[in-house]
Write a protein that binds this DNA or RNA. Sequence first.
DNA 1: CCCAATTTGTTCGTATGTATA
DNA 2: TTATACATACGAACAAATTGG
Lengths: 268, 268
Amino acid sequence: MPTAVTARNHATAAPPRRASAFRAIAPEAAEMPLYRVVKRALLQAIEDGTYPPGAALPNETALAATFGVSIGTLRHAVDELAADHILVRRQGRGTFVASHNADRSVFQFFHIERADGLREAPTVELLGFERARLDEDAAQALGAPAGEACFAIETRLALQGRAVAYDRIVIPAALFRGLTEKRLRDRPSTIYHLYQTEFGITVVRAHERLRAISADRTVARVLGLPHGAPVLQVRRTALTFGDKPVEHRVSTVNTSHHDYVNLLTRPI
Amino acid sequence: MPTAVTARNHATAAPPRRASAFRAIAPEAAEMPLYRVVKRALLQAIEDGTYPPGAALPNETALAATFGVSIGTLRHAVDELAADHILVRRQGRGTFVASHNADRSVFQFFHIERADGLREAPTVELLGFERARLDEDAAQALGAPAGEACFAIETRLALQGRAVAYDRIVIPAALFRGLTEKRLRDRPSTIYHLYQTEFGITVVRAHERLRAISADRTVARVLGLPHGAPVLQVRRTALTFGDKPVEHRVSTVNTSHHDYVNLLTRPI
DNA sequence: CCCAATTTGTTCGTATGTATA
DNA sequence: TTATACATACGAACAAATTGG
């Protein structure tokens, strides 16, 4: 729950701007603007489950009162969280914690579309599920020691019945305690939705590094390509709050009929 | 020059919110919020050269007065333009029209970096320059009829002396009247800086479609790769204001030692 | 080195418009 | 229709960064 703080009066006499009780509980934020302190507090409340995914936040007036800031300052904080896809605002309804419905996962994290521009959600087929140990690459990506316990998941993604990508996913076992092949197979929605609803892990952003490689035997078999065919390799690190890595994924994509699409910067 | 408008008083009596002279000069914006009308007017002023790249805008108080809006509304408009990299704000100095210095071109439009994460600006070598006619692909990307006159430019990009990318650039001749190989070769900075300073064309964003292909003879020769090696093909359409396409570029990248990097969403 | 002027950044508060249930 | 919530717009005061004297 966000900490209640005493209201401050800005225009009069001159209460020192940095002396609010609110700031006192976040000493590391000493020289941070107030709206950013509020943003952090909201993030913290989302992380610790005070406001779970899909939940509505209190209205702006109430939130501002809770934090002891003006509604303008509160809105500034919420604006940034909305820009980061952490919150979703809906006029007339409220402000909600973003949840990993199919749309979000597809539009924010899935970048493959047909060469003619048709965009749709892939069908996912589970090819493998096993307990394993982090190899060097995955360990580095996850910021964990090599050899640590993990789950290794393999899936094949298809668009219009055509196999398009072969994904090898590595996630730390410590974060996903109790994951079983059955739970993974029976998930009703995307895998990021499963992370969120079953393990309380919300993927908020990711970075990807791409290169062209030749299909090895495994890739060729899974994607139905000739051995040695050029394929796109996408290495993704998915991050949760505080830029903590929670998933390492290597996608190998057949780009004969599909493209990886990158829309740079925001539209005007 | 931004059009001066009579100031409106919001809090009192009740002058109809939609009846300002400002709105009257932009009838298509009838149902657009005021801050967005201001944003469009600023964009227009930047496009038509009232505020050229690098120029300082009048200060916020003056701009707000010019448009006849409150400073909060003016700031809302400027905020969005800054988020779009059209304007750059500097506390204590002013607000400036973004210009295509090397940094901007590199950080906003160049996505190749060494596999170990080292990021630097490429050295560019001009391989070819000729007048040509738009082929089907380029015509579609540029939204122009095939066969129209264009310039076809070929460059090789190197990082630390190693050839990394082979770029084929197509730009409409009509937009770049007077471009010569010498002017291109003698440019002091990036090619987008040349577009901006010599032809008044500012690239504000772009979209890219990526796929893996096999190096043909030309690519193999230019990049020093074996024929058939897997390479990354990046097809970029660069856009200016109003999402008007101004450049079509096909980059072919040797990703043996470098990656194409995509940082998804904004940092928190 | 410090001071004053200028400009954006932050914060406050209030009133009204618009979408939703 | 009414109530609620976010969206837009107004205005004011002070903080912080920059520049030039």
